[in-house]
């Protein structure tokens, strides 16, 4: 069965957001760990390209990149987490995730009303 491309994209975006949430939660948990450097999940550019190409195959083969990026110059203990930046990222990410979930729910309601 051929699924809707929008549903595929939303599902993929949500799984990337979920991964990003894991990275941010880890950064917050390690905000005081000596030598820890924050992880970042990058996917927006890739996702945008896939959406432009309209190819389901490319969508399924897409992988989020996990990068180590310092928020600030490492402190004396080698830790480079900026808690404020992580909290902002956390809020933004969970809002976007919830938005994607809402779109998905609406899409499902549309499909349902077509069926019945």
């Amino acid at each position: 069965m051929k699924t809707d491309f929008t549903v595929d994209i939303l599902a993929r975006a949500m799984s990337m957001r979920l991964k990003r949430h894991g990275a941010i939660a880890g950064n917050i948990a390690n905000a005081e760990t000596p030598g820890y450097r924050p992880q970042q999940v990058a996917f927006e550019d890739q996702l945008q390209e896939v959406v432009k190409s309209g190819s389901t195959d490319r969508l399924h083969n897409m992988r989020a990149k996990v990068l180590t990026v310092d928020d600030v110059t490492p402190r004396q203990d080698g830790n480079s987490v900026d808690l404020d930046r992580q909290m902002a990222g956390l809020a933004e990410n969970s809002l976007m995730y919830n938005a994607a979930a809402e779109f998905m729910a609406r899409k499902m309601r549309m499909i349902k009303s077509v069926i019945s």
Binding site: L18, H21, I28, A29, L83, L90, N93, N98
Partner: peptide, 15 residues
């Protein structure tokens, strides 16, 4: 720091 972790957890719960 504890509160920050609580916020991350509530965000996960809302997700």
């Amino acid at each position: 720091a504890y509160e920050a972790n609580v916020s991350a957890m509530s965000a996960a719960k809302s997700m």
